[in-house]
Amino acid sequence: MAVLDIRGLSVGYSTPRGELRALRDVSMMVPEGKIVGIVGESGCGKSTLISAIIRLMAPNARVGAGEVRFQGRDLLAETEAQMRALRGTQISMVFQDPMQTHNPVLTVGRQMMDIQYRERLSRAEKRQRAERMLALVGIPDPEARLNQYPFEFSGGMRQRIAIAMALMAKPALLIADEPTTALDATLEVEIIKRLRELQDEIGCGVLFISHHLGVIAELCDEVVVMYAGEVVETGSVRDVFHAPAHPYTRALLECDPGHIKVKTRVLPTIPGNIPDLVNLPGGCIFADRCERRHAACAARPAMALAGDGQRAACHLITERETA
């Protein structure tokens, strides 16, 4: 069963220019114990999607349609009190900036004990759990480190502490929003490795958001590619990265300079800009930047099966089959 199952989710923001349709008919799922990556560029709706899942949306946001099923319950129908009970216990988050995640005036130990306020444990037991968690994420000398303040840790360590705290309640779903973007390359690799190990141990589902294709390739089991508020392709990381079915996915992979082995002076790009989400064009959302645009693209393509478990929203797939 899927831990998280999103069906037909649409979210808009009211703006002075009209409704900005940030998410349109988004469906995706995180199977139990799997790591699912969401990849997409700025403006693709990654952040809106996360805020809709944990129901911490901007005041001008409005859910138009859809369901967010978490272990079978529709989160969009829960009361605020029920949501509050879920956040931090069943669903926890790791944010982008490790420098701003912690309270600067409390010791790390105090913060790690405070977040266990729901547990019926003695202070000494809570402290012991905190110490074990720090050791688990590879912080040397955890007992002494508990008495230190966040500024005494490096960025990489703070992000590991944030991961330790997020996993302390043994959540069923961990949402990680670009957790390595603010870190240097050598630390990024280390965080990915840790996350993978911990996920194995705790067995939770992970929704991992990143715009870094290399990180997704290395960490995730499955990937969801988003463009301008829609899901354009989903599938196993291997299938999607080796044989992208959607022209956007293909273009995105080609643009990554990590993919280009021979030194080149002219790097590939995707010409054009993302469409205006207030005045949406009709038809395929990627059409005006697509190399393979043709007559059929005037109609919006449905998600079609492109291979074993791999789906993409492109007319070319269905046309190939009928041809």
């Binding site: 040397p140 050598t186 990024e188 294709l213 291997r238 990265f241």
Partner: peptide
Amino acid sequence: AANPEPDPDAQLMRVELQGEP
């Protein structure tokens, strides 16, 4: 080595650094 490649099958030769800067 710490430059993750957008290829899930990439055979990486990792040189792991110890500790923190």
